[in-house]
Design a protein around this nucleic acid. Structure first.
Length: 212
DNA sequence: TGCCAGGCCCTCTTTAGGGCCTT
């Protein structure tokens, strides 16, 4: 698989999270909230959060899960307008999400509707956590907050809150590589490679990187 | 109203099945 990396500093990226009406854009599900943070030099320097009005009904299960009601969505701006703003917020940066394959499907589906496309790299904090935090009870975001004592307001299933937690998780993963595996400032390209490296090949990847 | 997907990853595997994750 070819990874197309955006022309940005390796330590500068955007962590994002969608709240949606369900699990599959191919089945008609839509985004109802986008949250994102920009990480620069190990710090969150910008934040983005917007509710969206997708024009479809939000299931009761999702209302209860997220606290985002049909009334809230109906009073929000249309998806197209918000997603155009988010496209501009991304501004060519590489992206990170927890279980990124899920958020990437919604990102591409929403961008396709406004005739935009994302050509940067997307890395996954879930896949990286499974490799670097193998002793964690599981790799749900809520579990990893407790396992790694990550900063959290105790809010879950809201886009900005989950994006901020994922950002702290990502920084924790980078710290793990730097302290335990003695890698100097792992690049985004290295993290993307780590995400797709089979577990049994991890020691080889890490030892090779440590010698660079 | 109720339901839906898909990629990863392990194993009792690879001509497969099922749990984990995301909403």
């Amino acid at each position: 698989m070819t990874i197309h990396l955006a022309a940005r500093p390796a330590d500068t990226l955007i962590v994002f999270d969608f709240e949606t009406t369900g699990l599959s854009p191919d089945m008609g599900d839509r985004s109802i909230e986008i949250g994102a943070v920009l990480i620069e030099n190990g710090q969150i320097t910008r934040r983005f959060q917007q509710l969206m009005n997708p024009g479809v009904r939000i299931p009761l299960f999702i209302e209860n899960l997220t606290g985002i009601t049909n009334r809230m969505a109906s009073e929000a701006r249309k998806n197209a307008e918000v997603m155009q703003e988010f496209f501009e917020f991304i501004d060519g940066h590489n992206l990170v999400a927890h279980n990124a394959s899920f958020d990437e499907r919604f990102l591409r589906a929403e961008f396709k509707r406004i005739k935009r496309s994302f050509n940067g790299g997307i890395a996954c904090s879930l896949l990286a956590s499974r490799r670097l935090f193998q002793q964690a009870p599981n790799h749900q975001l809520v579990t990893l907050v407790e396992y790694k004592n990550l900063p959290s307001e105790g809010i879950y299933h809201r886009a900005l809150a989950d994006a901020e937690i994922t950002a702290h998780l990502w920084l924790s993963l980078l710290e793990e590589l730097q302290t335990r595996h003695e890698l100097a400032a792992p690049s985004f390209a290295f993290m993307a490679q780590l995400c797709k490296t089979p577990k049994h090949q991890l020691p080889k990847l890490l030892s090779a990187a440590a010698q660079v």
